Simulated scan of single mutants.
Amino acid sequence: MLKYVNTGIVFQEIPDEVTLAINISNCPCRCPGCHSYYLWEDIGLPLDTEAIDAFVEKFGTDITCISFMGGDAEPKAVNQLALYIREVHPEFKVAWYSGKTVISSAINKRDFDYIKIGPFIKHLGPLKDPKTNQRLYKIKEDGEMEDVTSWFWKK
């Protein structure tokens, strides 16, 4: 079962969006230098459709996007929640931050607007560093992925 530890309204995870970031626990990636190592443990509250509805009720007028931060231990469950948001709360964009290097076969890319992949590698930096290994993709209507990582870089 997916569990979340906390949430936050953030402005830098998805460019041009006010995003509700849902921090999911039980991360199998365990990246050295991870700033959210507390998410390695299997802790928190159930992340299900009822939790999504409660987040929308609480934050719905303040956000434009809902992002799953983690969930790599259960990508199918992440995808089911993304599809739920698409169907029940279509006013929001949907994003997923994965620490894996490839997108799980359990994921239907069309259920997302954005997908970030890549483990955090300290010497390569986060998305805002041009030498990062991480990539943020915008998912087009046809399911193709457009690399938009450069949106984070200062011009």
Rank of each mutant, 00 (worst) to 15 (best):
W96M: 06
L136G: 02
T61D: 09
E74T: 08
F59R: 02
L81M: 10
D72L: 12
Q134N: 04
Y84P: 11
K131L: 08
V78E: 06
N108L: 09
I66D: 02
I117S: 09
I115G: 06
V94R: 00
F92H: 06
T49G: 03
A77K: 14
P119I: 03
K93M: 11
F55C: 10
E57A: 13
G99V: 08
K100Q: 14
F59K: 01
E74W: 09
I103D: 04
T101L: 15
E74K: 15
C65L: 13
G125I: 02
E74V: 07
E87T: 14
I66R: 09
Y37F: 07
P90W: 09
Y97C: 12
P46E: 09
F120M: 08
D111R: 00
I63K: 03
L136W: 01
D53R: 04
K138Y: 11
P126S: 03
A51G: 06
S104D: 13
T61S: 13
D111T: 04
T132A: 03
I85Q: 09
T132H: 01
F55K: 05
L83A: 15
L39T: 12
M69F: 12
M69Y: 10
E91G: 14
C65R: 06
R110Y: 09
T49Q: 12
V94L: 00
P75G: 07
S104Q: 07
W40D: 06
F55E: 10
I121W: 01
K76N: 11
Y38Q: 08
H89I: 00
L81W: 04
K128W: 11
W96K: 01
K58C: 05
W40R: 04
R135D: 01
Y84D: 05
Y137Q: 02
K109V: 14
G118V: 06
Q134S: 08
I139C: 05
K76W: 07
E57R: 11
F120C: 04
K122D: 01
K76I: 03
D129S: 07
P126C: 01
A73F: 14
D53H: 06
V102L: 15
N133I: 02
T61C: 04
I121T: 08
P90Q: 07
A106E: 15
H89R: 04
V88F: 03
Y137S: 02
L39F: 09
R135W: 05
E74R: 15
Y114C: 00
C65N: 13
W96L: 08
E87W: 04
T132V: 00
I63Q: 02
G125N: 05
D42Q: 07
K76D: 12
I85Y: 11
D113C: 03
P119H: 07
